[in-house]
Nucleic acid binder design. Structure first.
Lengths: 233, 233
DNA sequence: CAGTGGTCTAGACCACCAG
DNA sequence: TGGTGGTCTAGACCACTGA
């Protein structure tokens, strides 16, 4: 008799979040069961279930069969970040995008690539160096290795028009991968491409992708100091 | 007549993913409606709906009312990363964790804090420098500003036993925030704390959190070169 | 073992928006 | 305006696991 629209998954979520954030339920506390919440709110258990699953997915609560749902001890532990295509990244900042292929060869992979992708040392791969340019200034240097076994078309891909980055994203589906972020210093190759000096600090993004068990590509992306990557919590 | 367990949301997801990855449906292609998929698979539409919503949430497909469900042009664009408490981070790597409070004062915030949090220049805040230590070696230096208005208890928090990091996470719920990652060079304060030299490249994580519209805290965390942050795609 | 969350069903109504 | 996804319901059975 109080609220005009007592239902809807989103309303339930917000209501539960409010009760969490207001301190009504302390971290670690057990909250009522789905059934009792449903009765209290006046909706189906399924609806409460969906709301709670979303809260659990966002890290606000921890759910266990038989033992119930608890407020998470360390709330909201997940950050999600978007992985844009470099061209969109640059054009989104208002720059004019160009790219250059600095190196394109077909060779056997070095040790770090073998290890990263779990590839045999005798399996030939395509090795590419590309420079991504924003308004005539070097924006990012990319050192990429592509499995010919997984992507035979790579050897005849038209990299005069579309960058390896975009070509792979558009043509080759992947089922999983890994990103890692760190700091490194520029070696001679990177320094030359990025028009900086050897030893200069760079922001390094490493990415590998797989299609199920088959490795596709691994790459290192070097951004200059000043590059910034942001995520929402 | 073929599969023993034709149903279940997960199976449907995997089946749809397989058809996407196999190239049966090209990026941008329209896939059958929920109703027809349900009929084809032999389950309720609700089940197909859940599976498709999850795929949409993961960025594999794009859904629009009336126009249908399409394969995403840029697949899997989201990465999620866990935000651990520093102590867990260190102990997870097998280190012994300690921390030191190097500075604790109550002052008005500098410009960057005012801007970041949208706080008045006259509102006093708690300013803390803490050093997080792994096996007697500096692991991370933290420069933190906390809003007294949002967290009055901060002025009497027992930071001899529990780090500001953990105290805030445990005592103060937050509803949203922002992380950003970049490269910076060590100034004198950071260099002294981290036992390195001025100008050395550091991995910088900046984080701000809010409880709804109220800013709680903002901080800069300085990690030495060699630190690495990993996310799954 | 019993109580919790996990999931499926069949049906219904609604919101949106391209035609 | 009709067809699409979005969501809710009431009920059912299952899977896990703590007491």
């Amino acid at each position: 008799m109080k609220s005009p629209k007592p239902n809807s998954q989103t309303n339930i979520q917000n209501d539960l979040l409010r009760r969490i954030h207001s301190g009504e339920w302390q971290p670690g506390a057990l909250i009522p069961t789905e059934a009792s919440l449903a009765k209290e709110i006046g909706c189906a258990r399924t609806t409460v279930n969906r709301a709670l699953q979303k809260l659990a997915n966002d890290g606000h609560v921890v759910r266990k069969r038989r033992s119930g749902t608890r407020i998470a001890l360390t709330p909201v532990r997940k950050a999600t970040m978007e992985i844009p295509i470099v061209r969109d990244e640059i054009e989104g900042k208002g720059g004019a995008y160009k790219f250059l292929i600095l190196l394109s060869e077909r060779v056997k992979p070095p040790l770090w690539v073998q290890v990263r992708l779990g590839i045999s040392k005798d399996e030939e791969m395509v090795h590419l160096h590309s420079l991504h340019i924003s308004d005539s200034h070097p924006y990012m240097f990319e050192d990429r290795w592509v499995s010919i076994k997984a992507v035979p078309e790579i050897t005849s891909a038209p990299f005069d028009k579309v960058s390896p980055n975009e070509w792979l994203v558009r043509e080759v589906p992947y089922s999983g991968g890994e990103n890692s972020f760190s700091v490194c210093t520029a070696d001679e190759t990177v320094a030359n491409a990025m028009e900086t000096t050897v030893g200069k600090a760079m922001f390094l993004v490493e990415r590998s992708t797989w299609i199920y068990q088959t490795p596709i590509t691994t790459l290192k992306m070097y951004y200059p100091e000043g590059f910034r990557l942001t995520t929402k919590l």
